[in-house]
Design a binder for these strands. Structure first.
Lengths: 204, 204
DNA sequence: ATGGGGGCTACACGTGCGTGTAGTAGCCTA
DNA sequence: TAGGCTACTACACGCACGTGTAGCCCCCAT
């Protein structure tokens, strides 16, 4: 907050937009509020980005570029080192933008699934539908971000910033470290789904 | 669709509202659109529900009651029998309403976490933070619903209705049946998080 | 010094929103 | 048959939104 005034107005607008888009969704954040948060007139926003859609596009592009930048830095060493603190809000923004139907991030999600499909193809996951497997894992991870407010309410601290954020990250690691269903439970559930499929098929 | 006209106008408004709220979010769906979808004037909507917030409340109440009804029917037999086809849209609505900050469903989420905490307390999950564990699992499941459009785009079929819906359900069972991280990977990730926590602590 | 262009503001425009008001048709009760 | 209540419609109000326009200031190249 202290060095906000050091940034160019364009950057301040972009940062404010990312924050408000994340917090209220694309439709929920207004141009006027973003301009006020950035300390500029709403006209300037239009001057720099043309329209709300243009601003959103610029935010998408910025976030994707920044994340790609830190991503590739650690592409060799499996687990990444200290994550720069500025990327967390960007991740949260991208997830929210994705859910709100940004074309750019939809494309990004598709690429991530494609990539994950190839990556996991070599590993030993047991699945009859690798693409759905990868896509659903992605959707689940994003659920953590999308339910930020509710998780924060239930856990008693803001899970969008480090102390609480680390807490849910730890929980997610614990979740993925162990099977949550026994083979018997899983088989039973699968059979229940098969039964539904059959009933679906015989109806029309 | 055929028997829509058999329902009372009030019920048709409620159903249309649930559909549009789910599809576009609470803020994104307008009273006028809902009224048109229900085939009534927007004034009638106001007459029956008082305000948009009142309509939303009625939708929450209806969905929660209906789901509680089928939930308790199968409380004894672990895995439930055939799920009535009308509850799937209601689940999707509740998740969306929850993310959009409905007070009623926030309370429901809290209760679900409380209950899950007690339920899993007896089971043998390995976690140092049971409440976060339960809450994050819940958030992850909801991610599947929230990312409906993106999952549908990536998988090439609508995952909000049975053929595609069963596909992602199967995937989620596969995901929870097996560990996705080896103990070594999990420990490594945990240590990485610990390191971040320490760095957080020394900064201020 | 001067002219021009980019950063920036102020303000007006049209639209669609949730809401408010007035009034009508039809049924049930007395 | 008169009265009133409920379901329902038409329409206007005020507001906030995204957008459009006109113009100011200041820096910098000529």
């Amino acid at each position: 907050m202290s060095s906000d005034s050091d940034l160019t107005a364009r950057a301040r607008i972009r940062d404010a937009a990312i924050a408000l888009f994340t917090e209220r969704g694309i439709a929920g954040a207004t141009i006027r509020d973003i301009a006020q948060a950035a300390g500029v007139s709403s006209g300037l926003l239009r001057h720099h980005f043309g329209s709300k859609e243009g601003l959103r596009d610029a935010c998408d592009e910025f976030a994707l570029a920044r994340i790609a930048q830190v991503q590739t830095r650690f592409v060799g060493s499996q687990m990444l080192g200290p994550i720069p603190p500025d990327v967390l809000p960007l991740q949260q923004y991208l997830v929210r933008a994705l859910m709100d139907g940004s074309p750019r991030s939809t494309e990004m999600f598709r690429r991530a699934v494609d990539q994950g499909e190839h990556l996991l193809g070599d590993l030993k996951v047991e699945t009859g539908d690798l693409r759905a497997f990868v896509a659903v894992v992605g959707a689940m991870k994003m659920g953590m971000f999308l339910m930020r407010d509710q998780l924060s309410a239930v856990l008693g601290e803001d899970v969008g910033v480090p102390p609480g954020y680390l807490r849910i990250l730890r929980a997610s690691i614990e979740i993925f470290r162990q099977p949550l269903l026994t083979p018997e439970q899983a088989d039973q559930a699968m059979r229940a789904l098969d039964r539904i499929s059959l009933h679906e098929g015989e109806r029309p």
